[in-house]
Every structure is written in structure tokens, then in C-alpha cells.
Write a protein that binds this DNA or RNA. Structure first.
Lengths: 207, 207
DNA sequence: TAGATTGTTAATCGATTAACAATC
DNA sequence: TAGATTGTTAATCGATTAACAATC
């Protein structure tokens, strides 16, 4: 297999985790790994890892396992992070600032190239070398930078309107930090980060 | 049903999403809703919502649907967020600061009560009225405040060691923002937030 | 009453795991 | 060669959906 499309989304969702683990193995100067070792580290069965990878091709050798650097490269290509995606951040509050400052994006294929806010107090302010821009400039800036990926860090009341503007401007993937489900066209990807959802999931198991 | 234990974890994971949607309906002053409406808003089938809820009891009425306030209360109880969980934040960098400042925790059952860091520059500094404490005080502070929930916002190299300290101090649920899988005893809950994982998941579908 | 919607059962669909031949 | 580990098949397991009697 490998070339046939329609990969289960749940499988795609695990690839970034594999990539992260491989990155770590590279840091440890490990040349080879196995589905067993990866599974051990990630709390996933080795069979699942082999099955997941088999959707995309044959990356290992019987007896030896996987060449770490090679598999890392292959997954980077599969996920399209063998390049640098320019990103927009909407909302320059505490969270937006933290996102602009975050050093962890660039080594993994992303770079914040613009920040927007509505607050006149914030517009013009510099965050990590980027000037906060007014929302009125969103469309043009996103076009010229060819931004396809954006992160929303505005209050929840504003999130849907911001999402609409982003879609209008041509953004194709939105990471929404506002605690609300937003509606977008089918052609636009959305993912959510809401810490409270994770916390409430865990407190179910606490007394 | 309702009282039999061993609820699928995937069902538990959806309850916070339902709760969020109900919160929104309360805000909109809606008195009743239906599995159909909830499903529509969340992009989930109505059958799934009814099935999920049926694990915990009967909350609706045929013909009428669900009383919003009642269902909201019930799910709060199920998830144990009908109280306020004190939380610790470990790591007072940009992200840690944003977490301490975040106003969205208290209305949903959580309150940051202490912040820790190793950097002498940061120790003693005030963030939203909380003094940043040295890691040496972690054990005692967590005991006296009866903290069971913690968020890790330290660099990835430090994350496992911090997790160990937290477990040692009696923490039972960890929300880990460091991009690394950490090892903890079975009795401790862990959830992860890594924006890059979400971004890479989405770029798979982009060109 | 007629219409709407629940809770639940059974059917379907999909994901995970076990097992193993192939082979490095 | 002997041992290890892959990729894949088939079996198992679990989750989602469709359908409907019950009933508000």
C-alpha cells in the first residue's frame, strides 16, 4: 500500500506524536529504533505503530527496525512540515503574546509572521519584533504573506467573526484557542485547544 | 442504566464539550434544547449525544428534550466540577504567566493558587497577585493547599523531573504543555497540549 | 390528539490487536 | 545461522449510527 488515499484521520493525528518521539531519538543520537520501542515510549501498541505507518509506505527493515533520521524525514514530508508555514495570530492578549514569543514553532515547521488585535492600545506595539496590526489590515497582510494557517486567541464572543474574516482572507487551517465550536466551510481545517476541556476530562476520575 | 461504572474514556472526553455548549445556551437564555440541536452545533450526531448521556442516567423528556440548566448541573456533577479545584502552575515563562492570568478557569471549576519556577530572577515576582515560589517550596505548598491538579509549562528538558516532583507531592492530574510524553504512575491522569501537534495534523490536508 | 424527541436495541462500521510469514 | 522485527492478514474489540417503541 502507501499510495492509496483516504487515510483515517485518527491515524494522521498520531503522526505528529511519532514525529515528536523521533525528534527526541535524534537528540539522543539514536540511529535505529523499533515499533516496540516507540510504542513503549508513547504508550501505544507496536502493532498500531506498524499499521499506522503501513498506510504511507514501507519505512523499516525486518530485524533492524527503522532508521530514525529516515523515518523522521518521511513523516515530515507526509505531514507537509518539510517546509515553513507562515502563521497569523489573532488576538494579542496574554495568550497571543505567548504564542508570538514561543520558540517551539520554527523548529517544527511554523513561523508566526503577523499579529492582529482590535484594541487601539495594542496596535503598533511590538511583540518579538512584530508590530501588532489592526484587523483592517488582516486581509491584505494574509494575502501578501500567503498565510494559510492561523491561531485564534481572542475572547470567545469574537471568535466566530474572526474565523469568518480568516476564511474570507483565504486561511485554510485554524487553531482555535477560544472555548467555542466555530463553523467554517468544509474546505477549512479547524482544531481546538481548550485547557478546561482537558482538566474537566481528568477531574472525572478524581474524588 | 446510569449507575454501572466503566464508562468509555472517549465518552467522558466529550462531556466537557457538551458542558461548554450548554453554558453557551444558558447565556442565550434558552430553557430547553435537544440532542439534535446540540449535535448540530457541535458537529456530532444526535444519536451519539443521547447514547453518551445514557451512560449516566436519563436527563431528557420525550417530546421536549433537555432542560438546559438541569443537564448542565448534572454534567457538572458527573465531571466533578460542581466545586473549585485549586491548581498549581509550574513554570513562569510566557505561557505560565498567561495561564495564571487566564480568567476562564474560575467560571469552569478551577483556580490557580500557586506558581513555581527555578529562575531566581522570577522567584518573588508577582503574577496576578500570586508570588512566584521556588521549586523547593512545591511539596509543602501543594500539601497545604490540597492541590491535586497541576499544569506544567516548563521547557521540555525539565518536564519529566517536574512531573516526578508533582506526583511525589500528591498531584493526581497533570496538564502537560511541554511537548514530550511523560511517564507517571497509573493512578495519575495526564493530558497534553501541544499546539504543533494540532498544526501538523492540519497541514497534512493542505498543499 | 398529533408531533416531537427521548432512551435503547440491534446493525453497521471502523479501529485495534494478535499472529505470523517474510526477511534483514 | 539464529534472533529480531517488519508489513500484513484475519480476528477481535469497541464505537457509531439507524431505527423505533415509549411517552411527553
Amino acid at each position: 500500500m502507501g499510495s492509496i488515499r483516504n487515510i483515517p484521520d485518527i491515524v494522521v493525528g498520531r503522526l505528529p506524536i511519532y514525529l515528536r518521539a523521533l525528534d527526541r531519538l535524534i537528540l539522543e543520537r539514536r540511529e535505529y529504533t523499533s515499533s516496540h520501542e516507540l510504542g513503549e515510549r508513547l504508550g501505544i501498541s507496536s502493532a498500531q505503530i506498524r499499521k499506522d505507518l503501513s498506510h504511507f509506505g514501507e519505512f523499516g527493515k525486518q530485524g533492524t527496525g527503522y532508521n530514525v533520521a529516515y523515518l523522521f524525514d518521511q513523516i515530515r514530508q507526509i505531514l507537509h512540515v518539510d517546509r515553513e508555514w507562515p502563521m497569523a495570530v489573532i488576538g494579542a492578549g496574554d495568550l497571543g503574546r505567548a504564542l508570538v514569543h514561543y520558540r517551539g514553532f520554527v523548529p517544527r515547521g511554523f513561523r508566526v509572521v503577523c499579529v492582529f488585535d482590535t484594541d487601539p492600545e495594542r496596535i503598533g506595539e511590538e511583540i518579538a519584533g512584530l508590530k501588532v496590526q489592526p484587523m483592517t489590515e488582516l486581509d491584505e497582510t494574509i494575502s501578501t504573506h500567503r498565510v494559510q494557517v492561523a491561531m485564534i486567541s481572542v475572547p470567545l464572543e469574537a471568535a466566530q467573526a474572526v474565523a469568518n474574516q480568516l476564511v474570507e482572507a483565504g486561511v485554510k487551517a485554524i487553531l482555535n484557542y477560544a472555548p467555542i465550536t466555530i463553523a467554517v466551510p468544509e474546505s477549512v481545517q479547524v482544531q481546538y485547544i481548550d485547557p478546561v476541556v482537558h482538566l474537566q476530562h481528568m477531574t472525572f476520575y478524581l474524588k
